[in-house]
Each structure stands twice: as C-alpha cells, then as structure tokens.
C-alpha cells in the first residue's frame, strides 16, 4: 500500500475544494436554506405532521440526502474527469499506485467534502426548524456510507465521461429526479398503492428512509434493507472501478 500517494491525492483534492469554497459549500447551503424557507417555514406551517414529525423537520433528512447525493456524484466525477481532460492524469497512471490508492484518495476527498456539506446543512437547518436525532451513530454511519457510495458512483462517471456535458447529465437527469421522487419531501405511504410499488425500485428511497429513521425512528422501508441496498450498490461500484483499472478502459489506451 502506498499511503503517501493516498495522502498526496487527498490533500490535492481537498486543496481544490478550499480553493473553490464558494461554489463547493456556499451554493448548496444557500439552496438548502431556500428549501427550508419555502417548504419549511412558508408551506410547512400549513402542512400536517407526517408520522408525528412536523413537516419542516421531516424534510431535513431528505434535503441532506439531496445535497449529499448530487454533490458526492459531481465532486468525485469532476475530481477524476479534470485530470483526464487537462492531461495531468499521466502522472497518476505512471505512478506506483493501484486502484485502491487512487480510489481512496479521490473518492475519500469527494466523500469528505460531501460529509462536511451534510453537517453544514444540518447546522443551517437548526436556524429554521427544531429537530432531534434519535440515533446519532446511525445517522453518521448513513451519512458516511452514502457519501462514499455515491462518490464511487461519481468517480465512475468521471472516468466514463468524454466531455463536460456528459459529466453533468447523470447528476442532473438521474440523481435529482430520483431524489425528489425518493421521498425527500413526502412519506411514500402518502402515494397511491401502484406508485408505492414503483417507488420501491428507486434506490434512493432506501437511503432517505434509512436516514430519516436515524433522525426520528420512523421509516418507509426496513432499516436492514436500507443498509443492505446501499452496501450492495457500493460493492457494484467498487467492482466496476476495479474492472476499469484492470483493463484500463477509458483510462489507458
């Protein structure tokens, strides 16, 4: 294991994050605040409690997930896409590192950034609504697990993308709809039966449900199922990355 390489990549990526602090942190925090103002304070006061939780508090886990998923994917995707685009990837490819070190560095940094962001949103939410966290350890575990898994997913997208447009397609056209329809703003039990069944094919449902459970002890699906689905997705992503580095697909000619 080349730990110095992991450290070097991680440090490099985090430096990039802090260089672009405004767009990395400020804009997600701002948009989340807007959600709280609109859905929490303005509309939320006219909505009834869901599963005994006030609407403003109910949407916190969903909003955190919304930011966590899209930021993890786009951070990790950009992190590896840019060296490919600028040509500096040559150095990583010619370095004595395996996919393990590269992934730990890039994905670790992208996930760290998302986790910081999630916590920042949680703090921001405090200014708008009261909430409680019943299972803080589980909450943190979900946060980390989700951030890592979706950073892995973003890393794959970054390698597969050929241009900036492709880089944005998946976060924009896949992640955002799945999160909105995955119960960020409602409990899936509020849907008609047919849609409830269809919704269960949306992997994000399991993330949001499990995450919400860690806050309020209520969930749409079984908590074990939530953890299992996330781990399965993580495993699939790791396998794909392993294969990419083994064959050099889209990396080495």
């Amino acid at each position: 294991m080349n730990f110095y390489a992991i450290k070097a990549i991680y440090k490099f990526e985090m430096a990039r994050t802090f260089r672009t602090l405004m767009q990395s942190i400020a804009s997600p925090v701002l948009s989340t605040s807007l959600y709280f103002i609109v859905f929490g304070a303005a509309i939320g006061s006219r909505m009834g409690d869901i599963d005994g939780v006030s609407y403003g508090a109910f949407i916190i886990p969903g909003l955190m997930m919304l930011a966590l998923l899209s930021e993890s994917v786009s951070n990790a995707a950009f992190g590896i896409f840019f060296p490919k685009f600028s040509g500096t990837i040559y150095e990583v490819l010619s370095a004595p590192v395996s996919f393990v070190e590269v992934v730990c560095g890039y994905v670790g940094a992208a996930a760290s950034k998302s986790i910081m962001l999630g916590i920042l949103i949680l703090i921001t939410a405090r200014f708008f609504v009261d909430y409680e966290i019943l299972h803080p350890i589980w909450m943190l575990s979900f946060l980390v697990l989700t951030a890592v898994t979706f950073s892995l997913f973003g890393f794959i997208l970054g390698i597969l993308s050929n241009n900036f447009q492709q880089l944005q397609v998946v976060p924009l056209l896949v992640i955002t709809p799945l999160t909105f329809l995955g119960g960020s703003f409602y409990s899936i039990s509020m849907l008609p039966p047919l849609w409830q069944t269809i919704t269960l094919f949306n992997p994000v449902v399991y993330l949001i449900s499990g995450f919400r459970w860690s806050f309020y002890g209520v969930s749409d699906v079984n908590i074990g199922m939530s953890v299992g689905m996330t781990l399965l997705f993580m495993l699939i992503c790791i396998s794909i990355i392993w294969w990419i580095f083994k064959t050099g697909y889209r990396l080495r000619q």
Binding site: Y4, A5, K7, A8, F12, A15, R19, S86, G87, V97
Partner: peptide, 24 residues
C-alpha cells in the same frame, strides 16, 4: 511527457511535493 500538462491553480512547490507523495 511531451505535452505540458500541469495543474494550473497549484503552486510550484505544492505540485512537486504532490508528485513526490504520489510516488510513495
């Protein structure tokens, strides 16, 4: 390499230190 490809926003010292770390 033949092509000059560098991380434009990094400083000279940081980028050299990065390379050293990358090579273990």
């Amino acid at each position: 390499p033949q092509e000059i490809s560098t991380d434009s926003f990094e400083t000279v010292e940081a980028t050299v230190a990065f390379s050293r770390g990358l090579f273990g």
